[in-house]
Design a protein around this nucleic acid. Structure first.
Lengths: 155, 155
DNA sequence: GGAATTCCATTGAAATTGTCAATCATTTAT
DNA sequence: ATAAATGATTGACAATTTCAATGGAATTCC
């Protein structure tokens, strides 16, 4: 397991710089693990990471439109259509045409949706705490803060 | 003197337990951004993040089998077949049946493969430094160290 | 030694996901 | 008022993921 001791300047002839120093690779692998654990934990509730995310977004005060959901989740708007279709058909969310802009659908969780989100959050959290077991709470918060910078870059 | 993995950024106080506190979600979104940037940067060389990873793995001393590549990249073995097929058809890697286990293929980069990997590494690094340019080198190393714990959990 | 079992690579099919262009209804800009 | 832009939706298509099945090779177990 390599240590974070490498310099910033690239060294041309050094022994092959491993993938394990590559932030992109580490993100991909960590995400794959986390995603698998999350999906497994949410399956009991008939949810996946995606649908869970949408559901959670609709339980807040933000009242996001589908376009906003798509942007936030980095999905194509058409994918949000399917996700909301599914949640709506299960009575977990509703589409309300935004009075301020009647093109837009505001998606809002129903009571059942809120209840499910609340239960599912427990499962998700449990799964999430399995994965970074090796991290202290402090380290986990640091990680979250740093990831937040990557996930939501300014500008 | 604080350890490198101590808290650096305070968590924002939000009323609803937002998705932005969710490590899984942050990983997913950060990864999506990083992946998009990486793929875009590697496209010039006819590579994607996946094929680039395979290529890099085969330039080291590890001499990984396809099964090992699959495990490391968290891919299905059949996906590695396609990836290696592609790289091999372009003369970038070779399959050598492992003398110690003639079921296994050891994948090793050709000279052309090594040259391409070296050039592509430059592009990848450039792209990678674009994404987290809000982070100081110290923070980036902390992030890498923490991600490494998630990506390669003990046991 | 030989039979059963396990493992690696490969193929191919099915399901899921990602990407894109076109359309309708509405809103914004000229 | 007309034109341009935007949000949601649909449908088509590509790419990715997931699995089951196969053949050859190694391992295990009498």
């Amino acid at each position: 397991m390599p240590k974070p001791t490498d310099a910033v300047v690239p060294a041309p002839a050094s022994p092959a710089p491993a993938l394990t120093d590559d932030l992109s690779f580490l993100l991909a692998r960590a995400n794959a693990i986390s995603l698998a654990a999350g999906n497994a934990a949410l399956a009991v509730h008939g949810l996946k990471a995606r649908s869970y995310s949408v559901l959670v977004l609709t339980t807040g005060d933000a009242r996001p439109s589908q376009r906003e959901i798509a942007e936030f989740l980095r999905l194509d708007p058409s994918q949000v259509v399917s996700l909301v279709d599914d949640l709506q058909s299960r009575g977990l969310v509703e589409r309300r045409t935004d009075p301020a802009d009647r093109r837009a659908n505001v998606v809002v969780a129903t009571d059942a949706g809120r209840r499910l989100a609340s239960v599912a959050r427990g499962s998700a959290r449990a799964a999430e705490e399995q994965v970074p077991r090796q991290l202290t709470p402090d380290q986990r918060q640091t990680l979250a803060a740093l990831l937040r910078v990557l996930a939501f870059p300014e500008t």
